[in-house]
Amino acid sequence: MTHLISAAELAQEIDDVVVLDVRWALTTANTSAGRDDYEAGHVPGAFFVDLDTELAAPAGAGGRHPLPDPLVVQAVLRRAGITPRSRVVAYDGKESYAAARAWWVLRWLGIDDVRVLDGGYAAWLAAGLPVSTEIPGDREGDRHGDVEVTPGQLPTLDADGAARLARDGLLLDARAAERYVGETEPIDPVAGHVPGAVNSPTTAWLAEDGSFRRDLAAHWAAVRGDRVGAVGVYCGSGVTAAHHLLALAELGVEGALYAGSWSEWIRDPSRPVATGHEPG
């Protein structure tokens, strides 16, 4: 089963799925930007989910976006009326970075039938489909919102596991090349990358319209090269890395998420930091 859904397909299935709006921006100083966009217009019936507070735990030793408290996510899903039989679709503004985080978190919690709207809200608008400003009511307590989550259903890495994978398998760094090589670091206090990690910018997996590129298999072959072994992905804080994992899932490839990512790695000054391009 594909993990993506087109705007036209979602329009046909809209009455049979629960839609989650996960619009979010990493660089904006306005922490309510996603909520503001949602209230200005959204896919009809969609429930808003806040990435920073509902799909991540508070920033700290585990990085800027640690894995969330499962019970927090469970409460969010129940408010949206999700049951063990629900089919879920998540979307964000365009590139599906935040939607992929939602996809990954829900599947990590045991929600199997989750898809991402390819191209996000921009694709919905481009298709000329209707939008709504009506905010659906919470369904918490309703018999239809009775999902129970079970964390640990997808593979994860801690810092030591990421270091081993960089040595013995393939650890992908999903950040922009200039952050990977250490030329600049606009968010975290230390620039560079996990030694042995291979740079694979998230933007390279996208078409110009923000949807996933149609030649994913060829792109993955170029990224992987002749490397063998298990695959893991990290980014700055574990958000855009999920985008890689969604793309790989479309290809039938399982990868592990280093959830703490770079923002956790650099919290321990004893961990090595590499700069420049990795040989080979």
Rank of each mutant, 00 (worst) to 15 (best):
Y38C: 00
V239Q: 01
L67A: 08
D92A: 01
E264Q: 13
W103S: 05
V273K: 15
A61Q: 01
A247F: 05
D146C: 01
P151N: 08
Y258I: 01
E134A: 14
S32T: 10
D209M: 05
A33I: 08
F48L: 09
V228K: 15
L51H: 02
W205K: 12
A197T: 03
P70K: 15
A230Y: 04
G110M: 13
A218S: 14
G280W: 05
E254W: 05
A126D: 14
A259W: 00
W265F: 05
V49S: 06
T27V: 09
L216H: 11
S132V: 06
L257T: 02
L170N: 14
L10N: 10
D21G: 03
L157D: 02
A33F: 06
E95H: 05
G276E: 11
V233S: 09
W24A: 09
G192V: 04
G110P: 11
A163L: 15
G182P: 02
H243P: 04
A102F: 03
H65L: 00
E185H: 14
A100N: 02
D92N: 03
R143Q: 15
A256N: 08
R79F: 03
S86G: 07
E54G: 08
A249G: 10
F47L: 12
G280H: 05
D50S: 10
R143D: 14
D113H: 04
W24D: 01
S237Y: 08
D215E: 15
G152A: 12
R101Q: 00
A221Q: 13
W220R: 14
P195V: 08
V17F: 13
